[in-house]
Design a protein around this nucleic acid. Structure first.
Length: 314
DNA sequence: TTGCAGGGGTCAA
DNA sequence: TTGACCCCTGCA
């Protein structure tokens, strides 16, 4: 792959990247819609701003993201390219963090063609055509999805904000990084409950953080395990069941052949595929055989389609 | 104004 | 397999 620097621009894996006043402009980014990426349920620290941009705290840094389409093509599966602007970032940040974080090495037009294998999936993919799976930090994803259990997105976001403000490093006095495992592991349950409003999940967060810092579970090893081994490793942690484990694996970019099955996915699968009630086991087996290695991508298009259109609630 | 039902994964019985 | 866990929202 080319990796050439000309004056203030760089060519990297087919993207033309330029530094401008401390911001990074990445040309040639396709299959990307900030609304789809940040509001499809995979992340909790990106906030929509009134000017259409999104701001988020990622890996201890506050950034603002804007995406502009460079053409008006409406072909869903084609590379409808545009420019992604990320504030407060350099060339090295692009290579070291943003290229992976936004999964820019993956060709989503190809994935969409492969998963759009029936009329249902064609509609789901068309609806969420700008979804990309973010490769988020495993530790933050682990705790975020422990919080997500039996919970709704606005409340999950507020609990994460609370624990970051109380136990994370300050970035600019208003925004805070996600707290380190050492911090959470040392907390008393009552204190965490009082400031986070996380309820009974607080004891799970603390106990899980302790498992991480004492080395019983090494998140970096998940990448080298089979999907079943990785799932088993995660479900041994307190507060992590099969759905949360699959979310952690998928949203950290560790495994893509998982199919996190929550109530929305259960509803959409029952209404559109099974035409009857189905068990979690049936849904998992069906998705594994039907979508195979791309089950995680299929799940994300289906989830966003089902939730935004309230499929299965009538 | 108050209070109650509903929502949503994991765990233990 | 079922009920408890915790907090917020919506609606009488």
């Amino acid at each position: 792959m080319s990796d050439k620097i000309r004056e203030n621009s760089l060519s990297y894996h087919g993207f033309e990247v330029a530094e401008k006043d401390g911001d990074l402009e990445i040309k040639g980014v396709s299959d990307f819609d900030p609304l789809h990426v940040f509001e499809c349920g995979q992340c909790f620290r990106w906030k929509h701003q009134s000017d259409g941009s999104y701001t988020g705290v990622v890996m201890g840094r506050l950034v603002r993201v804007v995406y502009c389409k460079s053409n008006s093509g409406s072909e869903i599966y084609s590379s409808n390219e545009g420019t992604l602007t990320i504030s407060n970032s350099s060339f090295n940040d692009f290579k070291d963090r943003w290229f992976d974080y936004f999964d820019l090495g993956t060709d989503y037009s190809k994935i969409k063609k492969l998963v759009a294998k029936d009329e249902i999936m064609k509609k789901a993919v068309a609806f969420g055509h700008g979804i990309r799976l973010l490769r988020q930090e495993p530790w933050e994803t682990l705790i975020s999805f422990i919080i997500s259990s039996n919970n709704k997105i606005p409340r999950i976001m507020s609990i994460i904000t609370n624990i970051s403000e109380n136990y994370g490093e300050t970035i600019d006095g208003h925004q805070y990084a996600f707290p380190l495992p050492e911090k959470l592991a040392a907390l008393a349950e009552d204190g965490l409950k009082a400031c986070s409003k996380g309820g009974y999940r607080c004891k799970y967060m603390i106990a899980t953080a302790q498992q991480i810092i004492n080395g019983n579970v090494k998140l970096e090893n998940l990448y080298d395990m089979s999907t079943d081994e990785a799932r088993k490793t995660l479900t041994d942690l307190p507060g992590v069941g099969s759905k949360v484990a699959d979310c952690i694996l998928l949203y950290s970019g560790i495994k893509f052949d998982v199919f996190p099955t929550d109530v929305w996915i259960k509803r959409v699968m029952e209404e559109l595929y099974f035409k009857r009630e189905a068990s979690m086991k049936e849904i998992r087996e069906f998705s594994a055989s039907y979508f195979g290695e791309l089950a995680g991508f299929a799940q994300q298009y289906l989830f966003y389609y089902a939730r935004e259109n309230r499929i299965g609630t009538h």
